[in-house]
């Protein structure tokens, strides 16, 4: 019995040379029809679909543009007083009215926007960097390291902030940089605690274990596995930092830190305008308060969109 005989009996003979091996490179059974997109690009695509978030983004951009160009397009300067022209209601001449020293509120509002927006974003950004690094590391390492790092946070929480700030101002003198330092010196601990809590919760989940099994470094696991899954609370915390920073700046001005009069940030203007509610000069409180709220609102809806966009579990 031989093979050729057998073949002759029934099945047609197929010569070996008809079998062409597939080239390795075109071996794509799992071919994905969509082009491969990175995590961030995908997030952006999904963010763009969220109309409300885009509106928030546009408002933020407009606010920034107004902060840059508002004072320039106005015919008034932010510090020029016309004492006889104090507390004028909004009119075609002064769009936002004038303050108690007769200064144009429109110009002052956008001048203040520069400080408030800068301070708010910087504080949120720095809190984010320090908080995520610290909290992520602490939660990931766990054990003794975590314990120690959390005690440091407790100390920072416990120290009287006001004392630290007064010392800061005496040592460093007033200025924007001092404000940023004062805002972030303890500002990041909230973020750190949240990130740590999330990391503690997630670090034993399957995808993290899988990643670690493949030998991913701590940094990679935190960046690729843990952080994206923690984005929700982080973004919420960041959106909270912005208004907190804007108002904290007003409080710091009170201690003599930060930009000096006659420049006024939104927070300081809102503070000054408080007693103006009683006298009916509502515009002195309304405009700064309104723009703080608008910034907040824009930041929040953008944050919501970002949160959805960045959440890997919602990735389609």
């Amino acid at each position: 019995m031989s093979l050729p005989e057998k073949t002759n009996k029934g099945t047609p003979y197929t010569p070996d040379d008809l079998f062409v091996p597939l080239e390795n490179s075109s071996y794509n059974v799992d071919h994905i029809a969509k082009p491969s997109v990175s995590y961030w690009k995908d997030a952006w695509i999904r963010l763009r679909q969220n109309k409300l978030s885009m509106a928030g983004l546009i408002v933020l951009i407009l606010l920034i543009l107004m902060a840059v160009f508002g004072p320039i397009i106005s015919p008034y300067s932010y510090d020029h007083q016309v004492l006889t022209n104090g507390n004028q209601a909004p009119s075609s001449e002064h769009w936002f009215g004038t303050d108690n020293l007769g200064r144009d509120m429109f110009t002052r509002t956008w001048n203040g926007a520069r400080i408030s927006l800068f301070v708010g974003f910087m504080a949120a950004f720095i809190d984010f960097i320090i908080g995520v690094a610290y909290g992520g590391f602490s939660g990931y390492k766990g054990g003794r390291v975590d314990n120690f790092m959390m005690r440091i946070i407790e100390i920072l929480y416990g120290l009287p902030y006001l004392l630290m700030v007064i010392l800061l101002m005496v040592v460093m003198g007033p200025g924007l940089f001092t404000i940023i330092v004062a805002l972030t010196v303890t500002g990041w601990v909230g973020m750190a605690r949240i990130v740590r809590g999330q990391v503690l919760q997630l670090k034993n989940s399957e995808h993290v274990l899988a990643s670690r099994t493949f030998g991913a470094s701590a940094g990679r696991v935190i960046r690729k596995n843990l952080l994206p899954n923690t984005m929700g609370p982080i973004i919420v915390q960041m959106t909270l930092t912005v208004p907190t920073a804007i108002f904290a700046e007003a409080f710091l001005s009170f201690l003599g830190l930060g930009v000096q009069a006659p420049i006024a940030s939104w927070g300081v203007m809102a503070n000054d305008g408080l007693s103006a509610i009683l006298s009916g000069h509502w515009w002195r409180l309304f405009f700064p308060a309104f723009f703080i709220s608008l910034t907040m609102f824009a930041f929040n809806v953008l944050g919501d969109g970002l949160q959805d966009a960045l959440d890997p579990k919602l990735r389609k």
Binding site: L240, F247, A270, A289
Partner: peptide
Amino acid sequence: AMTFAVIGISVPNFI
């Protein structure tokens, strides 16, 4: 709800 929340955050308690 979220508008409510945003107002709550952005109007400081002294105002």
